[in-house]
Design a protein around this nucleic acid. Structure first.
Length: 164
DNA sequence: GCCAACGTTGGC
DNA sequence: GCCAACGTTGGC
């Protein structure tokens, strides 16, 4: 199982929008960057876990967790002339662009802001800091655990002290 | 809304 | 295949 960070502008599609879908599942379409496309097409697998990140807002942050429920398949919005993501170079035989399905899991008890991520020296190498424009990013397992800990999802090494 | 970073396009 | 021009992303 792999870990990922998916970026979205909440004004376009938010974590709550995913939660409010009838089956809490949604195709992750409209990605038009080749490196992100390669991840979606080749590497993202069913069962992979996703950090859901809100970008382009006053306080960008990881806000929740999602799960991949369908691996890469052709992005139909590229074939639809009425879609804002239409790509005249794409065709059924050569789709160019790919999407996956993601399902809502749970929100983080507290959002992990970009500011907090930047301030954590253990996260200095993640693409969010180094390659901020990449919209589909792999997350190392250690980084995954650190971010979940920062979000109040799991106990960090020092947080169990004093517990019953 | 500005603008730096960076990805893509297209002329040569 | 280089690289200038251009468009987009996304933090601030």
């Amino acid at each position: 199982m792999n870990y990922w960070l998916f970026k979205t502008e909440p004004g376009c599609f938010s974590f709550d929008d995913l939660k409010n879908r009838p089956d809490r599942t949604e195709p992750w379409d409209g990605v038009r960057n080749f490196q992100a496309r390669n991840f979606l097409r080749d590497t993202v697998r069913v069962g992979d876990r996703v950090l859901f990140y809100h970008s382009n807002i006053a306080e960008p942050a990881v806000v929740g967790l999602a799960e991949v429920t369908r691996s890469g398949y052709p992005d139909t919005t590229a074939l639809n002339p009425n879609s804002e993501h239409f790509d005249p170079k794409a065709s059924v035989g050569k789709p160019i662009w790919y999407m996956v399905d993601v399902s809502y899991l749970e929100p983080l008890p507290k959002s992990v802001t970009l500011e907090a991520i930047k301030q954590n020296p253990l996260l200095a190498d993640i693409p969010l800091v180094k390659r901020s424009r990449l919209s589909i990013q792999p997350v190392a397992e250690t980084e995954w655990h650190i971010i979940l800990t920062m979000g109040g999802m799991m106990d960090g090494p020092e947080m169990g002290i004093g517990r019953q």
